[in-house]
Amino acid sequence: MLRAFSTAATGMTAQQMIVDTIANNLANMNTAGFKRSMIDFQDLVYLKLQEPGSEVAAGVEAPSGFELGSGVRPASTLRVFTQGELENTGRQFDVAMQGDGFFKIRLPNGDERFTRDGSFRVNADGELVTASGYIVEPGITVPSDARSVSIGTDGTVTVFKGAENTASTLGRITLVRFPNPAGLTAEGGNLLAETPASGKPTEGTAGEEGFGSIQQGFLERSNVQMVSELVNLITAQRAYEINARAIRAGDEMLNTANQLIR
């Protein structure tokens, strides 16, 4: 009986985690480049009370065994890397990626991070940086006399500067891809970090070999779908309620049993 209480408690914890994840997804519904997460659950190990084929009464063999489950546990959170909608912002340093890949970002301490958020800008030195001010690799410096900057679908950054009538190339924004993007860890600030599970990044040119293409003047919206999140929220809430209900029923049963000794 007491085991069943902890079983139901694992159920409540699991539903609680779903609600937490949904809350985070919904909170980031308007975060550029945000990818929604979901939790993958697994049933817990079974307690073998009786092996199949064991003798249960004189000469009677159990047709099947008896295993008692002990609940559920979260196996992992999964980031779902489906494409978000592209929204036209008209800003010349906003870039959105259509397809697979990440922008590579360099932190001040030299570490590399990865993002889908392409709301870039230039800092005081003319360097292309993220909204948090981190350098976008491989490092592009926009001259101070630039008239207009254009970013091609392959990531090539060209500029018209001063009184020149021909465009000059500043460099190319390269993209990286991982064998297992779901293995990247989220660090907040729209940044993801490499892990042993994600595998080593492959660098490449936008639009080639499975890499997404780059759209200037657009931002990739989050891929959170409000309706489906809300539906999941209701499901989780109800499941939580029912698990709590199961504990209450067990409590009543124990209470009845306790009345035996009076």
């Binding site: 069943a4 008692l68 029912i242 698990n243």
Partner: peptide, 25 residues
């Protein structure tokens, strides 16, 4: 009955587990 109760709680705990099949006693 206690075992049956335990099996029900296990099923309910897995109400949102992908691919889970309910167990009955």
């Amino acid at each position: 009955l206690t075992r049956q109760y335990e099996a029900i709680t296990h099923n309910l705990a897995n109400a949102n587990t992908v691919g889970y099949k309910r167990r009955l006693i």
